[in-house]
Design a protein around this nucleic acid. Sequence first.
DNA 1: CTGTTAGCGCCTTCAC
DNA 2: GTGAAGGCGCTAACAG
Lengths: 337, 337
Amino acid sequence: MGMNPTVKDIAAKLNLSTSTVSRALTDHPDVKKETKRLVLKLARELDYQPNPIALSLKKNRTYILGVIIPETSISFFSKAISGIQEVASKAGYQVMICSSHDSVDIERQNVQTLLNSRVDGLIISVSRETQDVNHLARILDKRLPTVFFDRICEELQSTQVVADNFAITFRATEHLITTGRKRIAYIAGPQNLYNSRKRLEGYKAALQKYKLPIDDDLIIASHYEGENVKTYTDYLFNLNRQIDAIFAINDRTAIEMIHLIKQRQVKVPEDIAVVGFNNERFSAFFDPPLSSIDHPAFEMGKTATELLLQHIADDQFPIQKKVIKSDLIIRESSFKS
Amino acid sequence: MGMNPTVKDIAAKLNLSTSTVSRALTDHPDVKKETKRLVLKLARELDYQPNPIALSLKKNRTYILGVIIPETSISFFSKAISGIQEVASKAGYQVMICSSHDSVDIERQNVQTLLNSRVDGLIISVSRETQDVNHLARILDKRLPTVFFDRICEELQSTQVVADNFAITFRATEHLITTGRKRIAYIAGPQNLYNSRKRLEGYKAALQKYKLPIDDDLIIASHYEGENVKTYTDYLFNLNRQIDAIFAINDRTAIEMIHLIKQRQVKVPEDIAVVGFNNERFSAFFDPPLSSIDHPAFEMGKTATELLLQHIADDQFPIQKKVIKSDLIIRESSFKS
DNA sequence: CTGTTAGCGCCTTCAC
DNA sequence: GTGAAGGCGCTAACAG
């Protein structure tokens, strides 16, 4: 094994004490210029790197941030991770990521794992199953700096970073209404998730504003990644309610629905307008190009991390609720001029 | 701060020495049953968790695996990460991920960062820019267990996990040829990457087998994520070579090309057949559904990690080269029955 | 300016 | 069975 050199090794070769070497290495003023020069020279030659484990033990800080998200391979979260990494690494922090796979049980384990690892702070987006939040409350009790993002827990007093869920679905629904749609189906996410609730509220509020009826039959509570899309689609057509628009909780669902709608010889957007959510990289190239909502994943990750670092630096840093703006991208699936 | 209890704390409360407590906690045989019971009980009450930092310092192992990949948010790599995490966490390892953002300079930093963090092993997929591999050779010199996957370095003597790049492009090209295509354009990845080279070889070999000419004008060396797709497409049409098929290095490029081809009133697959690479989640729902190659990302991540863990457990474990099979998924963009 | 001592939390001889 | 001592690598307080 190419063992790493230690302060002791350097001290021995130079006939110095470890303290002097340590001081020279950390640029302490009380070291003779010549001594410092020698130490630094040898350190470079040996490719000395301070052992972060030893430093952690001493300083009781690991310079590691823990992240708990439902799934690394979901595009929203993988982009958020990019944002988290960017801010963290600039600040000299490492990141340790755990996926809950949308299971509370695994989420509980993740919390335990990261607490055991003595991370300096935590960034969390809760699982789809999370209702009981005791394991999360425990973190806050320990006063470990923590930021929730996207899938937050409203009942927990902590810093949060969310998208403008209500406003953006309101705006997208309004877009459908003002372009002449009247019976707009809504494929909702699981209603225990903060996001999904707020988004559904935005949809309903827009209908109300324009005095359109809220028809519960047209609201489908789906799972996250568009399972059973065929079932929903068949259901909507069998209703015989002459729906003229569909607003889906994610692009995956929207795209599969368009596929199924076209198979029925129904036209998009002429007969049915479709809007998705997430603005996936491919959505612009569909036929027709998919209107969607740009969910600011990268920026949410960045902001969450910035806030977390401030909490770590200052334990008096006040709790914050940050809202990141989403963007409605109108393409041909919802409106053809 | 909710300070974590230590062995010392438990020892003090029980009027025992730290050694005894330590022994009780690690289930050492030389401890009186009653003593052990008391220690375990108190440990549970205080929610004692051993400090992994201290353990690391002692054992000179961190139980952390380092991962260096080009970009967390590219779907292939985010799926590979899932596979890595799955195996690692089952074995009690944490994972520390760094993105090189396809830059050698950042990759060098990543190596340094992870070496400094004293990870127990390393999983690497090199950046697009990586030509000089000194920084990677250094890792092997240190005898740090390391596995390369997908984007490997052929010149480095180390364990590797790759897809059957040659075989699968050969097979896809053969599929195009046997369904009647003769002038097949190929959008290649950067040729310094192992994958891209092997794939291009597979394409050429298939043409040769069927005695079709290799026309360099039809081979375009692109970047990873389909930049300049419009330029390539215009170029191919302006060639006036009557191309009847396109094999693209990724689905993103394939899909955008189909979009552009359709705008020219040219039909897919009747006039031009298209095959992509990666089998993205959306590709089945395009119009027409995209033929693609299923690149076994998750499994490659799993396999790489399993091999790494074996290297860590046994430093005599011999170097391995594993090939994971890809799958050709034929949909309507390449063949309509 | 430099060295000695002590301690971060844990485990592992060695001694009784 | 149990305790005391020492050390993993580093730094900070205390002496000179």
